[in-house]
Amino acid sequence: MDDLTGFQRDLLTVTAGLDEPHGLAIKEEMEDYYEIEVHHGRLYPNLDTLVEKGLIEKSKADRRTNVYTLTKRGSRELNARSDWEAQYVET
């Protein structure tokens, strides 16, 4: 995960946390977090990068909607990142 941008790590986290992680739902969650509009030209290329890296899978829900799900590798990477962060952040 050290080669991902912060935005890509956030996309991975949001994808893991949604029941039906399709593009629009991910976009809305990211916009809520960042408090700015997330343009399609930023969202989808970054999702595609995560697919290329084997961290998420993309499948078709219908002709217009893609669903993004965490792979086993993506889940392992996300958990490892969380464990690493927990070493430095007190709760």
Rank of each mutant, 00 (worst) to 15 (best):
K27W: 05
G54W: 05
M1G: 15
F7Q: 00
H39W: 04
D3V: 06
R73S: 06
E29H: 13
W84N: 14
L70H: 00
E20F: 07
L70M: 05
Y88E: 13
K53E: 12
D62Y: 02
G17H: 04
L47H: 04
H40T: 14
V14Q: 00
K58I: 12
N79I: 05
R63D: 09
T69N: 08
K27E: 05
A80N: 08
M30R: 06
H22E: 13
K27Y: 09
M30H: 02
I36T: 14
P21C: 02
R9H: 14
D32G: 03
D32H: 11
A86Q: 07
W84D: 15
Y44F: 13
D19M: 04
N46C: 08
D32P: 00
D62C: 01
E52K: 10
G41N: 09
D62S: 08
V89M: 14
A61E: 11
L47R: 04
E31G: 06
Y33P: 01
Y88A: 13
Y33V: 11
D32M: 07
A86L: 12
E57N: 12
L55Q: 01
I56V: 10
R64H: 12
F7N: 07
N66R: 04
Y68S: 05
M30L: 01
D48M: 11
D83Q: 15
E57K: 12
W84K: 15
S82I: 12
L78G: 02
L11F: 06
E77M: 09
P45R: 05
A80L: 13
E20V: 03
